[in-house]
Amino acid sequence: MASTIRVRASSNGDITEVQALIQHPMDSGFVKNAKGEIIPPHFIQQLTFEHDGKNVFTADWGGGVSKDPYVKFAFKGGKKGDELKISWVDNKGATDTTTAKIQ
């Protein structure tokens, strides 16, 4: 299966800017379907970014983050060609991990 995580990381030599887009329903547990039944909560709880074995960013998310979530941040260091490891885990225990090369 294709990865749920799409990442673009680019370095200007000093700072690496990271944008991530993840496919996930992010159901909050407050929305009803067409039959009037509550759609149970199903959302990513934690998303982590690692560079060179070190955590550079962690997102703790609730059901209030939009479907197919997007996040953007930047960190110092990181060279072109370096790997960035991205992982998420949701409230049902599902996970996905990918690595992206810094451009």
Binding site: I15, M26, S28, F30, K54, N55, V56, F57, T58, A59, D60, W61, G62, G63, G64, V65, S66, P69, Y70, V71, K72, F73, A74, F75, K76, G77
Partner: peptide, 27 residues
């Protein structure tokens, strides 16, 4: 978001070396 059923949307942990700047999309 004060008026949402659950107020807290997201919390981002910023280690040393990461810039204090975040963009995201919320409900």
């Amino acid at each position: 978001v004060s008026e949402n059923p659950n107020v807290l949307i997201a919390k981002y942990n910023i280690p040393a070396g990461t810039l204090p700047s975040v963009a995201n999309r919320i409900k």
